[in-house]
């Protein structure tokens, strides 16, 4: 009986703490009143160099613009975690939520809840459903990235031959968007090229290296490896180098210059494609601040983003600029 009592007290306690204080305001920060704005900033995952670079830009923007920045994100691949963090931010009472979305449909439910509570929502890096946010800070669209990747690959291969893709996990949402668009571009423009296989590397460099080594052996005519998650680019390059196929098998991918510099200089990796990641973080916070202050409204065509100057809008997309192709010639100019 005592156990039952304990059980009921436990549950009762949980309910009591909740139900006795329903009147407390959930959005104490408010947007007016000269209070410091709180902007919550979420990467797809923590512990990833790409998003750490993004965060560095966001921190600089927060200092420039005088806002409070919250940084939180999933530490594993649990697809529900982003929703949970957004829902926590809603009850925490923040002014703007900025998210790089892992699950397009899934996260939108949580973001709509935030909007219903009067919290402004902005997405960056990869978008939610359009109705779940005000603006999308677009470093490059899925189509844009896919096209640059596919076009560069085709150019490296001379427009014909076999190629393979290394991705993070088979379930990663935005990479699947890119793969779909790569497929479209492939069918439309490069009928002589053939995608032989797509392999996951679990976001680990060593696994990418092993998968690439296997692909090189299994497909002797392979002409190009396309790595679409950042740890996979140096992994693929190392495998090509160790197989003694430098130059014969081209390597390209989406990655950070710092992780690929040596390979690009040695001619193992022909092209690394990326945008100015730090600027992406900076621009996101600048846009979020302008949105909260009412300086950026739907329908605007430009807005002033701190040190980045005037930024153009296309519809509800805030465009950072085109993806950048790092090659032997220019890679030394970038240090992220």
């Amino acid at each position: 009986m005592r156990k039952l009592f304990l059980l009921i007290t436990t549950l009762g306690l949980i309910m009591a703490t909740g139900c006795n204080k329903p009147s407390e305001s959930t959005n104490t920060a408010g947007s007016g009143g000269g209070k410091k704005l709180t902007i919550a900033f979420m990467p797809k995952s923590k512990g990833n160099q790409y998003f750490i670079t993004c965060k560095n830009g966001a921190v600089k923007a927060a200092a420039d613009l005088g806002i409070d920045l919250l940084f939180d994100g999933p530490t594993n691949t649990d697809p529900a975690k982003q929703n949970e963090i957004v829902e926590n931010w809603i009850t925490l009472g923040v002014d703007v939520i900025a998210v790089a979305c892992e699950n397009k449909e899934g996260i939108s439910t949580a973001l709509r809840k935030a909007q219903a509570k009067g919290i402004k929502v902005i997405t960056f890096d990869s978008d939610s459903m359009p109705d779940a946010r005000s603006f999308f800070v677009n470093q490059a669209t899925a189509t844009g990235i896919a096209n640059v990747l596919m076009d560069t690959a085709a150019q490296l291969c001379g427009g014909e031959g076999e190629f393979a893709i290394i991705t993070a996990t088979l379930t990663a949402n935005n990479m699947n968007e890119w793969r779909k668009n790569i497929d479209l571009r492939l069918k439309e423009k490069y009928p002589k090229m053939k995608l032989v296989e797509t392999k996951p590397c679990d976001d680990q460099k060593d696994k990418a290296q092993q998968e690439t080594a296997n692909l090189l052996g299994a497909y002797p005519n392979l002409k190009c490896v396309m790595a679409i998650c950042s740890p996979a680019v140096p992994g693929a390059a190392e495998a090509v180098k160790q197989a003694g196929k430098v130059g014969k098998v081209k390597v390209l991918g989406l990655g950070l210059p710092s992780e690929n510099r040596a390979y690009v200089k040695d001619g193992v990796t022909q092209a690394v494609i990326l945008w100015k990641v730090e600027d992406l973080g900076y621009l996101t916070i600048a846009a979020a601040t302008a949105l909260a202050k009412g300086e950026l409204k739907p329908g605007a065509t430009t807005f002033k983003a701190g040190k980045l100057g005037e930024i153009q809008l296309q519809g509800s997309d805030i465009v950072l600029g085109q993806p950048f192709v790092f090659t032997k010639e220019n890679i030394d100019q970038f240090d992220f």
């Binding site: 949980i14 703490t17 909740g18 204080k21 407390e24 925490l92």
Partner: peptide, 30 residues
């Protein structure tokens, strides 16, 4: 149970909007 209570009181004192109906709902839902 004591630990849970301690956590609850501590976070209620230090955290922002911890013991609100919405947040308790979140904790349960999640």
């Amino acid at each position: 149970l004591f630990l849970v209570l301690l956590e609850a009181f501590y976070f209620n004192a230090v955290g922002r909007n911890f013991a609100t109906a919405d947040n308790v709902g979140n904790i349960i839902r999640h």
